[in-house]
Every structure is written in structure tokens, then in C-alpha cells.
């Protein structure tokens, strides 16, 4: 399978502060790839490196076969960027911005852009600065779709959008990406939305990647077990069995990639007397918090 993005031993510091070290990941062609992580784990740094606006301190990051911070202008034609906050030239009108961008991209698809704009019910001479955040997001998405890029990098597309516009954005994005076999690399703070979009994910922890796998595999193999104990359980170690754990009084929750029987045996071997041991299902947001912790 062809890799559209390939990052090798990616390392970045801001001054002396290490953001992450030796990050390795790839994004296959035709996949929707989500990067998840709490604030400060380096999502935006990674996006900035991929967008070519930040030169990594160490390692290499290849986008469509070229180093991301040194992209050939012609390669940029194949990459559509959605900037955080749906940044666009707000001093232009709906028609002016289309006229401007259409000159740069040989496969420009005017119909896709105006198709999306028509849904908003705004006139073509409507100035973008006078639009709501939701309307602006549709303009930004319409422009990227019209560009017809091979790769779309979407930085927190959900920022400032209400539920309706988020759904509209996702619906159009999924339809477009699946129909045209595009590759997408995206982040969002609304993790529950990503569950229905992304194929693969990396979850970033402090200074490292916690996991990289297809989203279905993650949700299928990551478990949440609840149980009660008499007295207080000694602190658990993070190891192959316990990915994370939390407690409230005598109620415990353990997150693990191991099956129920294995976890139960593991706890019993620790000499813990457990009651009411059971598993509950998780959506992506729960699984993400389960893996990374609430704090």
C-alpha cells in the first residue's frame, strides 16, 4: 500500500522543551487518518510540520514523497489544507474567493464549491467576514474540495461549529472522500465525531505515541473493566495488562487490551479480592480517555 505521509523519527523541541521524540507513523493512500491527543501532546505541532510551516528539530516527514517543510509548489497543488478556525481570505466575497483560487488549481471543480455554498442560502456577493463560523467552515471545505487534492490535512475542523454544522461538514467530507478516494489527515477536539469518520488513528501521549492502529481494531481490542474491592487496592502498575486504571472509593476501573479472564487472573494474582467484575462497552471518546487518562 502506498504511503501518502511517512514520518520517521520525528522529534521536536520548543526551546528546551521536548514535545516528542522519535515519532514514527505512516498514512496510507485512501485512508482517513485521525490524530488524537490531549492538549499539549503535539497534535498541532505535527500538523504544522506536515503543513510545512514548521521544520522539525529532528527526523524526517515526507508528504507525497517530499520533505514536508520543503514542498515543491506543484506538490502543494495536491494538498488541501484546512487551517484551525477555518481561516480564509475574509476580505473577499464568496464569488471573489472562488475566482482567486480557481486560477491556481488545474482540476478546479467549481460545481462542488458552489454546490456547498448554495446550501447556505447566501448570495455570491456575500462577504466572508460577515458569515458565521459555521458558514465559513463550509466555504473553507468547499474550496478544498474544489481544489481536488490527493491529500487533505484538516486541523481541528470542528472548532467553533455547532452540532448541525459539524454534521453537515462530516457528511460532505465523508461523501467526497469516499467517492473520490482521497486521503485525509485530521484532528478534532470532538472525538465522538471522528469515530464515524476515521479509519486509522494515532493516539498521542506525553512525548510519544500511545498507539497507532485502525479505529475498529482499537475499539474491538481495548476494554474497560469495572469491579469493587474490599478495602483499598494497592496502586496498580502500568504494564502489558493494565493500560490505565482509576478508582473512586472502593470502585475500580481498569483499561486493558487483554481479555476479561486474563485481567481477572492478573488481579487475583496480586492477591486482590474482587467483586462484581464486569466489562462495559466504550465509544471512541471513552476509549480515548481510558487510554490517556482524565488528567
Amino acid at each position: 500500500m502506498e504511503n501518502v505521509i511517512e514520518c520517521i523519527n520525528l522529534t521536536h523541541y520548543y526551546g528546551k522543551k521536548l514535545i516528542y521524540k522519535d515519532l514514527n507513523f505512516t498514512v496510507e493512500k485512501g485512508k482517513i487518518f485521525g490524530i488524537l491527543g490531549k492538549n499539549g501532546t503535539g497534535k498541532t505541532t505535527t500538523i504544522n510540520i506536515l503543513m510545512g510551516f514548521l521544520r522539525p528539530t529532528g527526523g524526517k516527514c515526507y508528504v507525497l514523497g517530499e520533505e514536508s517543510h520543503n514542498l515543491n509548489p506543484q506538490t502543494r497543488v495536491k494538498i488541501g489544507l484546512l487551517h484551525e478556525g477555518h481561516v480564509c481570505y475574509e476580505f473577499m466575497t464568496v464569488a471573489q474567493i472562488e475566482k482567486f483560487y480557481s486560477r491556481f488549481f488545474p482540476n478546479w471543480r467549481k460545481d462542488l464549491y458552489f454546490g456547498l455554498i448554495d446550501l447556505l442560502g447566501v448570495t455570491y456577493d456575500h462577504k466572508i467576514s460577515n458569515m458565521s463560523c459555521g458558514q465559513r467552515s463550509q466555504v473553507a471545505l468547499g474550496l478544498i474540495m474544489a481544489q481536488d487534492p490527493e491529500l487533505m490535512i484538516l486541523d481541528d475542523y470542528s472548532m467553533g461549529l455547532d452540532a448541525g454544522y459539524r454534521m453537515l461538514f462530516i457528511d460532505y467530507l465523508i461523501d467526497y472522500v469516499r467517492e473520490n478516494n482521497k486521503t485525509v489527515f485530521m484532528t478534532s477536539h470532538i472525538i465522538q465525531d471522528l469515530e464515524q469518520i476515521i479509519d486509522d488513528t494515532i493516539i498521542m501521549g506525553r512525548q510519544k505515541i500511545l498507539l497507532q492502529m485502525p479505529i475498529k481494531e482499537f475499539l474491538g481490542s481495548f476494554h474497560q473493566y469495572h469491579f469493587n474491592v474490599n478495602g483499598r487496592l494497592p496502586d496498580l502498575d502500568y504494564d502489558d495488562t493494565v493500560a490505565n486504571w482509576e478508582s473512586l472509593k472502593n470502585h475500580y476501573t481498569v483499561y486493558s487490551f487483554k481479555a476479561e479472564g486474563d485481567v481477572k487472573t492478573y488481579l487475583e494474582n496480586k492477591g486482590v479480592s474482587i467483586k462484581d467484575f464486569h466489562e462495559t462497552s466504550m465509544n471512541l471518546e471513552h476509549a480515548f480517555i481510558g487510554l490517556t487518562g482524565k488528567y
Binding site: M51, G52, F53, P73, Q74, R76, V77, I79, L81, H83, G85, V87, C88, Y89, E90, F91, F104, F105
Partner: peptide, 18 residues
């Protein structure tokens, strides 16, 4: 100023021109 507000220079610098 319109280019630097909201980091719009990123839009300009991503255009297929050096």
C-alpha cells in the same frame, strides 16, 4: 495586516508558487 491576522499568510504560502 490581513495576511498576518489569523495567520492568513499560511494560505498565501501554500499556494503553488514559491
Amino acid at each position: 495586516v490581513p495576511e498576518v491576522v489569523k495567520k492568513r499568510y499560511r494560505l498565501t504560502f501554500h499556494l503553488p508558487i514559491s
